[in-house]
Amino acid sequence: MKKLFEKHNNWFFKTGFVITVFMVTLVVIGQIWTPYDPAAMDAAAKAQGPSLAHFMGTDNFGRDLFSRVLEGAGATLIIAFFVVLLGAGLGTLIGALTGYFGGVVDEVLMRICDALTAFPSVLLALIILAILGPGRLNVIGVLGLVFIPSFARIVRTEFARIKKLNYVSLAKLQGVPTGRILLRHILPNIMPVLLPAISIGFNNAVLAEASMSFLGVGVSASEVSLGRMLSDSQNYILRGLPWYAIFVGLTIVLLILGFSLLGEGMRQEE
């Protein structure tokens, strides 16, 4: 961590770091403790705007919105985490193997990747999710899947570039097994490219989850998430109660802003 700070001593990285740490801390605390029980209804405090008692106001059932946003943000972050884990993990694996070994498999896979990355990932995810049906696990699986090509492409380019460098030839001469060359010799050197991509991936995952759940093909009706809440909050706007939507939206913006600044900061050249 300290090394990352020394390397990326810029405005983007620092601000992104502060925002991300703030949001993640808030969400982690929200998993353990919230000001109110997110599900507790209060008939005396229905659909209120922000107040001292309820900092973000309440919904139709008098439930505390701040507590619910914390819960929803937690769910969204967990989904985003697994989406990135799946997309970046498999993407890196595929990119590393195709980039290092090349050949026909590489050609074919990259053609498929090209076609898939041309297609907006949200649209692709939407269609597949529509077939599979909603649910948290489906969202993770499908978003993770549609995120693979973008990671695979980045990683492939880097592996194909680095495998030609002398230090890799040297490792081969020293008898280093191929697996170790991929993992210990090349992988650490693609981090300057992979880390920003992961950070942008988080950003896209939060955005995609929100869009999917907003459209009703994301998490199921019984589950929480920021996208789900955003969808609920729509009904309040027309009744002149915009707070719900604005707070949920702001939470999404802060999450995305944090990740995107981190990614941007890591890409800045010193």
């Binding site: 460098l165 002398n166 230090y167 030839s169 040297l170 001469l173 020293q174 008898g175 650490p188 981090m191």
Partner: peptide
């Protein structure tokens, strides 16, 4: 045994991450 090598370009011969 297998030969070893010293390359021309000392900038790509050493793993920059290590």
């Amino acid at each position: 045994e297998r030969p070893q090598v010293v390359f021309q370009d000392p900038y790509t011969a050493l793993n920059p991450a290590k």
